[in-house]
Nucleic acid binder design. Sequence first.
DNA 1: TCGATATTGATAATCGTTGTCAATAGAAAA
DNA 2: TTTTCTATTGACAACGATTATCAATATCGA
Lengths: 148, 148
Amino acid sequence: MTTSTPPIQEHWLALLQENGYRVTGPRRSVVEIVANHHRALNPYQVFELARQRYPRLGLVTVYRTLEKLEALGLIERVHQPHGCHAYLPAAVGHQHLLLCQGCGNAEYFSGDDLDDLIGRIAARTGYQIKEHWLQLFGLCTACRAGAQ
Amino acid sequence: MTTSTPPIQEHWLALLQENGYRVTGPRRSVVEIVANHHRALNPYQVFELARQRYPRLGLVTVYRTLEKLEALGLIERVHQPHGCHAYLPAAVGHQHLLLCQGCGNAEYFSGDDLDDLIGRIAARTGYQIKEHWLQLFGLCTACRAGAQ
DNA sequence: TCGATATTGATAATCGTTGTCAATAGAAAA
DNA sequence: TTTTCTATTGACAACGATTATCAATATCGA
Ligand SMILES: [Mn+2]
Ligand SMILES: [Mn+2]
Ligand SMILES: [Zn+2]
Ligand SMILES: [Zn+2]
């Protein structure tokens, strides 16, 4: 019988190993939660969920694990109107977030082309533009149906 | 002799009046700082600057005044990589921010047209898109020169 | 299996923000 | 101008979220 553990999770644990970190029970539980969720979770939410898998988990360990996952580029902080302390699996390549205002579901999209706009703003302001943040908010199909 | 007080500041104070708030010394000092700055300032930074004008100012009053200015739509919170608790005079109409990574200077720009992109993402994902956040980061002309 | 040490959870400390309250000051009325 | 009402103030305490400390424990290479 082969294990059905999602590959993202295994990849994250392997990356922790490779970087000299130990793979422990508490870390497994945190990774399992954050790697497989489609909504941004704050440290306490991660704690509540992960401790169902690893009951003696401490909140402090959640903070420390999130810190390491962020340093490894595996998760990233999501900025939202109601708070900026929730995390999601990091974008792969050049992607931006689309967030559902109803259920909090998050998806990445790619294919934005802002070169034109950026060129125009650069010319107008004299700035050399190096980065951009783009985030879309709306209602997913499920929430659209629910709210009519 | 006419006063040379910047009009934004007077507008803000008038708006406080109109909404039943009293115009006090402490509030004047906070408004003067935030209304005339081109960089996002957090509550403590506002406190340090404003108390040069009104030495007996308390930090708590800064928090309370910022809260009211935000409620009146005169200032807005700015999200940045290194923190999301700094404020700027609010955008007028549909505008987005361009921030200098060197000196922190902030400018608004308008004229972005994301309808095309948004339509494409909506079609692809099934989301009904209701809002967007866009923010550009770069170097202003002065910082570009300074950093070569 | 063993041992060095990274990691853990409990606890305390810290930081930014918000609540409490008596004293004060704004502004409308007298 | 003076009076009066009460919104506002600053000092202080309280709070919640995050970070530091430390002895006990668990990981993983030897
Ligand atoms: Mn982009
Ligand atoms: Mn726009
Ligand atoms: Zn939804
Ligand atoms: Zn600059």
